[in-house]
Amino acid sequence: MIKTNSLTKIYGDKTALSIDQLEIPTGQSFGLVGNNGAGKTTFFSLLLDLIKASSGEIISNKIAVAISEEWKNFTSAFIDDSFLIGYLTPEEYFYFVGSLRGIDQKEIDLFLEAYADFFNDEILNQKKYLRDFSKGNQKKVGLVATFIGKPKVIILDEPFANLDPTTQIKLKQLIHKKSEDKELTLLISSHDLNHLTEVCNRIVLLEKGSVIMDKETTAKTLQELEDYFSA
C-alpha cells in the first residue's frame, strides 16, 4: 500500500529522518516506536505531505504523495489537536468531515451510533465547542472522525496519550476490530509499548531518524522493546 524510497528529511545539518526503503502492505497494522525526536511525527507528516522531503519519495496506493493530491481520497489522519476545529461542536465537526468525504448528515448520525460506547456519553449533545472539551475527549472526537468514509489508510499519532484507562482499553478493542478489515492499512505511533504490541502486527523502531528494528509482532516483541529502551 505504502512504499518509501530513500526518504530523508534534513533540517539544517540535522537529519530528522533517513529511511532507505520501507514497504507497508495493504491491511497491515503498522506500529511506530521511538524516543522523542526519533522521527515518528516527521515520518507521518511526510506521508501526509505536510512537510516536504529533502530527498526520496513516498508512494501511497500508486500515488506519489508529494506530487498528486489524490491520496487524500483514501487517507485520513489524526496527528494532534490542530486536526480539530475548536469552534465547532463535535456533531458539526463530524458533519463537516463527512461532507468533505461525500457523506451526508443522516449517514453520519448512523455512523456515530456505533461509537456510543466509545464516547461514553461525553461527546454528543453536550452543547459545547470542541475547544471547551478536555484533551482526552477532544482526542476521542479526532480519532472517530478518522474512521468516517471508510478510508484505506489511517494514520494515528499517539492515539493513546491523554485518554483515560477505560477509553484506552476501548480504543484497543476498536483498533482490533478495524484491523480485521483486510483493506485497511493502519499506521500508529505510541510511547506505550504494551498497547502498541497488542494492536499492531508489525513494529518499527526509530532512533535518530533511522530504522533500528523492524519485526512482525510476536510474544517476545514486547520484551525485546523493553530491553532496547532500558539499555
Binding site: L48, D49, K72, I79, D80, S82, F83, L84, I85, L100
Partner: peptide, 12 residues
C-alpha cells in the same frame, strides 16, 4: 491557521 494541517489533509 489553528487547524491548517487538518484542512491540508482533507479531500477539499
Amino acid at each position: 491557521s489553528e487547524y491548517y494541517p487538518f484542512l491540508m489533509c482533507q479531500n477539499l
